[in-house]
């Protein structure tokens, strides 16, 4: 699956990274706590979140996240867009709630970047 497929499934608006829609996607992580993202997310995953501030982009950059999906119709601040453009991290915005966003992607074959915590890092 590519980021373009993700855009179609979520009827999402691409706010940053229109030139990166051919990127492949297999896994995702969803959280509003950036420390949780830092603790558990894996590289080359999607980050689904309801947060819109620049720290989401920083966190995505630190972890080599493929793209940020802002749920519940959330739109990034101007600062966030600027930073994402600078760091070349795509941002998509979908009107689906987090549960629906996750469910729709999972149904199409996107899996969690980890299934549950405990055991391996």
């Amino acid at each position: 699956m590519t980021l373009k497929d993700v855009q179609d499934i979520l009827e999402a608006e691409v706010l940053v990274g229109r030139d990166q829609l051919q990127k492949p996607v297999k896994t995702a992580f969803a959280a509003d706590l950036m420390s949780d993202v830092l603790a558990f997310a894996k590289p080359d995953s999607l980050l689904l979140t309801g947060l819109t501030n620049p720290q989401v982009v920083r966190t995505a950059d630190i972890l080599d996240i493929t793209a940020i999906i802002m749920v519940r119709g959330k739109k990034p601040s101007e600062e966030t867009v600027k930073l994402a453009e600078e760091l070349k991290i795509p941002i998509l915005s979908t009107r689906y709630i987090l549960f629906e966003t996750s469910g729709r992607l999972h149904a199409k074959g996107i899996t969690g970047c980890i299934e549950k915590v405990g055991g391996e890092i």
Binding site: D32, L33, M34, S35, D36, V37, L38, A39, T49, L51, N53, Q55, V56, T59
Partner: peptide
């Protein structure tokens, strides 16, 4: 907390 931090996981991470 608004920035997504402050969950007390930083030092643990």
């Amino acid at each position: 907390r608004e920035m997504g931090f402050g969950a007390g996981m930083g030092l643990a991470n």
